[in-house]
Structure formats: C-alpha cells, structure tokens
Write a protein that binds this DNA or RNA. Structure first.
Ligand code: FES
Ligand code: FES
Lengths: 123, 123
DNA sequence: CCGAATCTGGACTATTATGGTCGGGTTTAA
DNA sequence: TTAAACCCGACCATAATAGTCCAGATTCGG
C-alpha cells in the first residue's frame, strides 16, 4: 500500500540518469538497464510510454514526479476511495456520505505532494 | 496505485458509523456489515485488528486516518521506493543515490496528509 | 550500403497482493 | 440455555504487478 510501482521506480532512475548526464548526451535503454540491473524489456516499455507522452522531450530538471507517474500508469489517479467510484448504489449512506469529501480533499493533497517534487531536486 | 484498500475503506466506514452514533451506543459488526453491504467476515477481521490496536477504545472523533491505516495494514508504511529497501547491492549508484532522499521526504509529506485528517472531520 | 545492435509492441507467464469465503470452537446477552 | 454474534486460522478466486519471449522494424557505425 502506497508504494511506487517498479515501473515508476525504473522510470525515475532512468530519467534521473539522463538528467545527470547533461543535455546532448545520448543514452540507450540498454545501457541504463545494464548499469542499474533493471530488466531491459521492462525498462524499454516504460521509456516507450515516457517518450509517447513527450516526457523525454522536456527539460528533465523541471519534470515533476507527478507527470512521470501519470505517463507510466496512464490514469489520472483520482479515486482514493472506491465506495463512491464503483457501486454507490450499495452504500446506504451514499447520498449523505461524509466520508467521500474529506477523502477527496486528502487525495488532492497527495497529488500536490507529487506535483511538488521535480527531477531537478534529485540530481 | 494509491488507492485505499477495501479493508481500510471498510474500517473507515465502520468507525465513522460508530462516531456518528454518539458515545455509549453499541454497534455489532453484523449490523454494520448489513447496513453498508460489506462482507461480514471481512469487516469482522478488520474490526478485530482495530480492537487489538486499541483503536476502538479511543474517542473516534479524534482518531487520525493514519492510525487506522497502520492498525489495519500492520506496517509502518515507510518505504515508498523499493530500490533502497530490497536490494541495494543491485544498484550501482546506491551509495551516491540522489533519488532515495527526496522520495523519503515525499513519503513523510504523504504520511503527514494522513496524520492530518481525523474521523471527527467526517461526521 | 551492410550488419549488428537496439528498439517496438504484442502475447505470454509468474508472482504477489487483495478480496472474499468457510467452518469449527467460544463468548455474550436475552 | 440457546440463538446470535464473535474469534481466528485456513482456504480459494481474482486481479494487479513484474518479468519474459520473440518477431519484425529501425537505427547507427563503419
Ligand atoms: S458513499 Fe459509501 S461510505 Fe461514502
Ligand atoms: S538506491 Fe538505487 S536508485 Fe537510489
């Protein structure tokens, strides 16, 4: 619960590696996979996703962790509580529910934490 | 990724229910399970854990969400990044790693978010 | 231009974590 | 005193994650 997935972790390592190398440097997925003992195929996929979302095109130092997570996981990552999202008809207090709103606010706070950290702070 | 587990969700619903009922009220796990269409056996286990950690003995209004999560999930919920915790010997930059520390700080920020929300704010 | 290395991307397997169930023995309260 | 509720370990089903395999396309150094 509340751990970064391996994919995100690998993505962070790769991007940080590229950021540390300075601009203009060329890095192959193979090279990074070897250096950090990451399964190549998996890292390759991660980097494909990052590339498709134009993450790799940006200045790494300014990249936010949140953007990387979203690119890799694919979803806007919104619903911290499932009762609301999935089957509101099951919940007898759904209409008067006082759990949802505080948790949505909590969710926003968490999102902000990820928005606040940039790769630049890791190099 | 970054969703509360069902167990925690059920725990929150149950505790909020008890908080809303006012002090002195008696609530059985069965009753709560029926009212919210939660599988009884599962809710029962959750409440057992809460009871063992003396969560149910405290004033619900002052309970922090963090305490509930810890009681149910059992772990202090510390390592947001796995590279460090699991196999540091695999990572060639482990000694000079600049990823760990920022993410630990991020972890602390997330913990704080859960520490900041109390059941009282949900009733 | 050629060959080797690398990338692409789908299909597939393995491993875990999660959510849920069953059942037998124990307590509790009408 | 007996039904209902609780305790708790074992168990099963499903889904999410992590990792693998491979065949075709691309890129790049020479
Ligand atoms: S909608 Fe069901 S607990 Fe909030
Ligand atoms: S210890 Fe490996 S990336 Fe930080």
């Amino acid at each position: 619960m509340f751990q970064l997935s391996k994919k995100v972790e690998y993505g962070l390592i790769a991007i940080r590696h590229m950021a540390a190398g300075g601009p203009g440097q060329i890095h192959t997925a193979k090279e990074i996979a070897d250096r950090y003992h990451i399964p190549y195929e998996l890292l390759a996929k991660v980097m494909q996703k990052l590339a498709k979302n134009y993450i790799l095109a940006r200045n790494p130092a300014e990249l936010k962790v949140a953007a990387i997570i979203n690119a890799i996981e694919g979803k806007p990552n919104v619903t911290i509580i499932q009762c609301e999202a999935e089957s509101p008809e099951n919940c007898i207090i759904h209409d008067t529910c006082t759990i949802k709103n505080p948790l949505v606010k909590l969710q926003l706070n968490i999102n902000r934490v990820f928005e606040d950290l940039s790769i630049g702070e890791m190099v």
